[in-house]
Structures are given as structure tokens and as C-alpha cells.
Computed example of a mutant assay.
Amino acid sequence: MSKPTTDKQATLAEARVRIDSIDHQLQQLISERARWAQQVGRAKGPLKAAVEYYRPEREAQVLRGVIDRNDGPLPDGELVRLFREIMSSCLSQQQPLKIGFLGPEGTFSEQAVRKQFGHAAYGLPLGSIEEVFQEVTSGNADFGVVPVENSGQGMIQVTLDMFLASKATICGEVELRVHQNLLSLGGKLADVQRVYSHPQSLQQCQAWLRINLPKAERIAVSSNAEAARMARSDEAAAAIAGETAARVYGLKTIAGPIEDRADNTTRFLVIGRGIFPPSGNDRTSLLVSVRDKPGALYDILRPLAERGISMNRIESRPSHTGKWQYAFFIDISGHVEDEGIQEALKDMEPAAADVRVLGAYPVALP
């Protein structure tokens, strides 16, 4: 498709005619893509469920190609979002994916679902992170999306603890820029006597609350959307939540964004029941229990360093197998099928009580 000429300013009428023509071409191409997606489905044969058609590694490769080809003016994130929605709609021709998330409707977890799977997927709001794991491992949900880390508040321990007992695997990751807003029914700061929110969000906004609402009671609830639901029936209350929750529950924005850190970002994990092939830019998550001996952790990490494998993250948690016993969650660059990682895992075995691959998945896209 041609770009506007620089030597002649197009009239408004000419620009609109050209846009109409481009829209027509886009619609034809999207329909053609959908028909070819049907052909892919037929080529795979009579699979049993939508989850069997979904290939996150292929999707990541396609979206990286979108970024590589982008020469503006739209930013990478916007183009990725547009193409994600096209792929979501094409996939749903077989059957929409069912994605569990921490509900109710309007949470940041739901926003992460839409960023990763598009709006053609079926969102399944659940009451807790534990329920998300249960619905995925039981097969009632194809995938789940759970928060695991915030850039300011660190790891979300309940998510890590679920991996100690659950058989769920990690199939992807989503990074979501989180903007917190103060919402209420009346929209006046002077009326606020109570503030409802998720504990993490209260922490993310504690400096703003201390300055602007020093006397207001802070009440922790299960999710920001639940906070918004409670605030809509309490004229003396406000909720800390996102813009989506404001729209869903009919609240007014008193102030926002009110998060203390300008880079406030939450990382979510996509959980499923299997490990997918490499995409070309991947991360592998490990759960390692060490033997009780001097230098045990060094012996675990040494094989990674010797092969030049970058460790992105390490977090320890009580292993629940005995008093003062710990397990380590380790994220490394690369896919578990890579030769170097396979060799490193083998070298870890003498020093480890147990090594479990939690997942290998594409690195988060914009």
C-alpha cells in the first residue's frame, strides 16, 4: 500500500477516499487470512478442543515479525495488539479458548488475558489464584493467567506456592503496565472515609494515600474489581482499581494515576498443561530443591554459568517438605530443548534433591 506523497498536500476528501480504499483492502485481506486459518485447522485434522489448535510459539514468531517490519507511525505495542486480535478471531473459528483469571470482571488479570489472547477468547473469572490453577489442571479451563511479580512490590508468593503442589506448567508471560486510579460513586475526595483494594495495590499507592487520604481506613480485599464492586454500594468508600473497573461498575475517577512508581508493571504467567516447542526467543522456569549441604546452591548455579546461560531471576520459598527446607524458583534465558540447558540440567542432578521444569515459553512481547 502506498504512502502519502510529500510534495503535495492531500485534501480532506482525497484522504478519506484513500482511507476507504485501504479499509476495503484490509477487510479483504483479513477475510482471506481467516480462510487460510481454516485450512490450517483442516490440515491438523479432527482435534478434540480449541487448546489443541493453539500454538504460542508460532504466535510469538508471527508477532515478532510484525515488530521487525514496523516502520511507524504506529508503535510496536499497538501493531502487536491489532494482530493479536486478528489471530484471536481466526483461532476462535475452531472454538474459543477458555481462559481462567482472578475475577471478578474488570481486574488487571482480565486485562492481561485480553493482551495475551485477544477478545475472541472466553474469559472465565474465578475467585482466587488457587481456583485458576485448579480449573486449568482439571481441564475446565484451557489456560489460566495469574500475577507473579510486580516491579515495585516483588514476587506474589501465593502464585509461587501453587507451583509447589500443582502440575500446571508455564506456557507464556505477559507484562502489563499498571495504572491505579481512585474511584468512587460520587467522585469527591472529601467524601472518602474508606479505601478498598487488593493488598498489592494498597502498597503500590501508599505514598499517595498517606498524603491525600491520611485518615481514611484502608481495607484489603481479594481483587481490585471486588473493591470497585464494594465501592459502588458505599458512598463513603473509594476503590483503587483500573479504568476498566470504573467502566464495569459505574464509578467516577477521583484521581489517577496514583501509583507511587512511574514504571509500575505487573508480570503475569500463562499456565497450562504442557510445554510447547521453542519460538526462538524463550525463557525456561525451573523449580529446584537442594540437598542440605555446604555449597549446594553454588553447585546448582555453576552449570548455568559454565555454559553462558543467563539467569534472569531466582526466588526461594519454603518447600513444604520439611522444616527449614527450601525450593528455588529460577528463570533462565533459552528453551529447555536447547542443548546447553539440557547439559546444565544433567549436571545439576547430583547437587539437587529435585529439579522440575515448570515451563519453557516465549519472552513477553510489548
Score class of each variant (00 low, 15 high):
T265Y: 06
T107S: 15
F276S: 11
A121I: 06
K215F: 11
Q204C: 06
I330D: 00
A121D: 15
A344E: 10
S166C: 03
S310A: 13
T137P: 05
V270H: 12
S222P: 05
A231K: 03
I254E: 10
P46W: 00
E349S: 13
G118W: 05
A227P: 12
L79W: 03
D338W: 04
I211T: 03
Q28E: 10
E349I: 14
L160N: 02
I314G: 03
R16P: 01
P278H: 03
I170Y: 06
A225W: 04
T321P: 06
C171W: 00
A228C: 14
A37I: 02
L202I: 11
V146M: 09
E131S: 05
Q39D: 04
E59H: 13
R291I: 05
S21C: 03
C171E: 14
P214Q: 03
G172A: 15
P96H: 01
P350Y: 11
S279A: 15
S310M: 11
L126Y: 14
I22K: 07
S289P: 00
P125N: 08
G127W: 06
R317A: 14
S89F: 09
K323P: 05
E259S: 11
R291C: 02
P350M: 09
F268K: 09
A352S: 05
L365Y: 07
A43T: 01
L47C: 02
G118Y: 03
F329G: 06
K252Y: 11
V145A: 08
H119S: 14
F276P: 02
Q180H: 14
F276Q: 02
S109A: 15
K115R: 09
A305R: 09
G72A: 02
A120N: 00
E57F: 03
I129A: 04
L124H: 03
N264K: 09
F329H: 06
P318N: 10
L97W: 07
I254A: 04
A121Q: 13
G144H: 06
Q111G: 12
G152A: 13
L301G: 03
E14M: 02
D260E: 11
A237E: 01
L183K: 04
S201G: 10
H179G: 07
N181T: 05
R114H: 07
S2R: 13
R33P: 00
A296E: 12
P366R: 13
N224W: 01
I254L: 09
Q61C: 00
Q204H: 14
P362H: 09
L176V: 11
L269I: 12
V248Q: 09
W208T: 07
A120D: 02
K48M: 08
Q193Y: 01
W324G: 07
R16F: 08
I341N: 12
L29P: 00
R283G: 05
D76S: 10
I314F: 01
S31A: 14
L286M: 05
E135W: 07
A255C: 09
I99M: 10
F108K: 07
A190Q: 14
E235R: 13
K98V: 12
S223I: 00
S92Y: 03
V355L: 10
D71I: 06
L47P: 01
S2M: 00
R194G: 00
S31P: 00
Y361F: 10
T107Q: 12
K188G: 05
Q180L: 15
A207I: 04
S138H: 15
Q28L: 11
L213D: 04
E110L: 01
I219N: 02
A228I: 07
A360L: 08
I19W: 15
G45V: 11
I170F: 12
Q203Y: 07
D234P: 04
A50G: 15
G152S: 13
T137Q: 14
S138L: 15
